[in-house]
Nucleic acid binder design. Structure first.
Length: 291
DNA sequence: CGCCAGGCTTCTA
DNA sequence: TAGAAGCATGGC
């Protein structure tokens, strides 16, 4: 693919370039593995098709993506949507090569990076992220996806390609019993509590953005059903706090076995991104770190 | 059938 | 303040 021909070529920052082609946006980006990014457990509304393409909905917009060699094609989207939604969503305004270089002084991390360097930490909608990770607790990925799909189908807005994620305000009006169609079990009352506290601004997202990581975590943990792990996932994937380190069972084992109980200081600033690399590494290599 | 899922709340000492 | 039980549901 020639990026230097007749097309207007726009160089944006950080080793990423794109061009409009018909109704598609073609992206070349060094650290962007579409499949790994959309299917590594950070987002639950993307499906990978048999032919390797992916589709899903975020920020009220449907998108289909196709991987093509070194580039990724965003199908049937406009430059306007790309710049206002997807550019931000895929975190293209961040220099992953630089971050990887910095954290790879640590050999364990460098090894993990070699397995997972194309994963990007998505910038998702904070409410959707909070709600999704409340649902994720003590649950498995296929069922998490199913519950979220039913949540959108039941209470979201119909658009081309599917349904939007219902707002906190919409869910706040409901009662726990109204969520029965989701079959989300004990999590129903957590979802309602979260929606009400977010909609009423008892838990205020603008405030959270202004707080430091510990303060922001404490705010989110005012919600019943939100502990440290869900709070940190929300901060990382919903508020782009790349220093937030969600400690799930896998990462706890990695820290114990490979880091002697202490997450490397030199990587703390990017702990959330590194965590994604480590998680992928542990899963892909089926790392024998149980017990 | 029993076990487990990228936890959290509640109960108990 | 720590540790363990209980939690809804569904896949295996």
């Amino acid at each position: 693919m020639n990026f230097f021909a007749l097309d207007v070529i726009l160089y944006l920052v950080k080793k990423m370039k794109y061009k409009s082609q018909n109704s598609d946006i073609v992206i070349e980006c060094e650290n962007f593995d579409m499949m790994a990014t959309l299917d590594c457990g950070q987002a639950f509304r993307w499906t990978i098709n048999e032919d390797g393409s992916a589709e899903g909905i975020a920020f009220g917009k449907y998108l289909k993506l196709v991987s093509d060699g070194d580039s990724v094609i965003l199908k049937n989207t406009s430059e306007g949507d790309f710049l206002s939604v997807w550019y931000h969503y895929f975190d293209f305004d961040r220099d992953y090569a630089k971050i990887i270089n910095e954290v790879s002084d640590n050999k364990v991390i460098a090894e993990a990076v070699s397995f997972a360097k194309g994963i990007r930490v998505l910038r998702q909608d904070p409410w959707e992220t909070l709600c999704s990770f409340i649902i994720s607790q003590n649950n498995n990925i296929p069922r998490i996806k199913g519950i979220i799909l039913r949540l959108c189908e039941t209470f979201g807005e119909k658009i081309d390609g599917g349904y939007t994620f219902p707002s906190a305000e919409q869910i706040a009006k409901l009662e726990v019993e109204d969520l029965a169609p989701l079959r989300c079990g004990f999590r129903a009352r957590y979802i309602i509590d979260a929606a009400r506290k977010v909609a009423s601004r008892e838990v205020d997202f603008d405030n959270i953005r202004a707080l430091d990581t510990n303060g922001a975590r404490a705010e989110l943990m005012k919600i019943c059903g939100v502990g440290e792990k869900v709070a940190d996932c929300t901060l990382l994937f919903g508020f782009s706090r790349v220093e937030a380190l969600p400690k799930d069972v896998w990462i706890k084992r990695v820290i114990e076995k490979l880091f002697d109980g202490q997450f490397p200081k030199e990587a703390e600033q990017y702990a959330g991104i590194v965590q994604q690399y480590l998680f992928q590494y542990a899963r892909l290599t089926k790392l024998e770190i149980g017990d």
